[in-house]
Amino acid sequence: MNPTSIAEKSTEQFVQFYYPNYDKQRSSLGSLYRDGSAILWNGNAFSGVQQYSEFLGRLPASQHDIDVYDCQPLSAMANAQGATGILINVTGTVKYGDHPAKKNFSQAFILAPDEVQAGNYYVQSENFRFV
């Protein structure tokens, strides 16, 4: 399978896991991050799993609707097994808490191949922004 096909399949699986769990079971997202993960959430910077998990736990319930997502394999991030990193861009709308209006958002992820578990990825970098 070529890197583009792997990136597309992995991106689809990531998006289908990430957003439903963000909306219903945020505590399950911690396994996607490492202590060195860099996260920027609407201008707020976080470093690592603990700080980000605490922040997510304070947010009200959410409901994401994904409009579109795209991906690009990052061959410069290839590991010893030949797996490449993946750049993912997502756009859609999100509603938080009882607020009636949905807000547009854009989110970018850089997934890095997991060195321990072949075929798995973790979020090396994430940037979320209301638009």
Rank of each mutant, 00 (worst) to 15 (best):
N2S: 11
P3C: 05
T4C: 01
S5P: 01
I6A: 09
I6Q: 08
A7C: 06
A7P: 08
K9M: 06
S10D: 08
T11G: 06
E12C: 06
F14E: 10
V15C: 06
Q16M: 00
F17E: 02
N21M: 10
N21L: 03
D23Y: 03
K24H: 07
K24M: 02
Q25H: 10
Q25D: 07
R26I: 12
S27M: 08
S28R: 10
S31K: 14
L32G: 05
Y33M: 04
Y33R: 02
R34M: 03
D35Q: 14
G36P: 01
S37H: 03
I39H: 02
I39W: 01
I39L: 12
I39R: 00
I39V: 15
L40Y: 05
W41D: 10
N42R: 00
A45K: 08
S47Y: 02
G48D: 05
G48K: 08
V49I: 14
Q51T: 09
Y52D: 06
E54W: 08
E54V: 02
F55N: 13
L56V: 13
L56P: 05
R58S: 15
R58A: 15
L59C: 07
L59D: 08
P60K: 05
P60D: 06
P60R: 04
A61C: 01
S62K: 05
D65V: 13
D65I: 12
I66M: 12
D67F: 15
D67Y: 15
V68I: 14
Y69N: 10
C71F: 12
L74H: 03
S75L: 15
A76Y: 07
A78W: 06
A78S: 15
A78F: 07
N79C: 12
N79S: 09
N79D: 15
N79I: 12
N79G: 11
A80R: 11
A80I: 11
Q81C: 06
G82T: 14
G82Y: 14
G82R: 11
A83T: 13
I86G: 01
I86V: 15
L87W: 15
L87G: 03
N89W: 05
T91N: 13
G92R: 11
G92I: 14
G92F: 10
T93P: 01
Y96L: 15
Y96N: 03
D98Y: 00
D98P: 01
H99A: 07
P100I: 13
A101E: 11
K102P: 00
K102D: 01
K102T: 00
N104C: 08
N104L: 12
F105E: 04
S106E: 06
Q107F: 01
F109Q: 04
F109A: 04
I110S: 09
I110E: 13
A112W: 02
P113N: 02
V116S: 10
V116I: 14
Q117K: 13
Q117M: 11
G119D: 09
N120P: 00
N120D: 10
N120Q: 13
Y121E: 08
Y121H: 08
Y122K: 04
Y122E: 02
V123E: 04
Q124P: 00
S125C: 04
N127H: 09
F128H: 00
R129N: 03
F130M: 01
V131G: 00
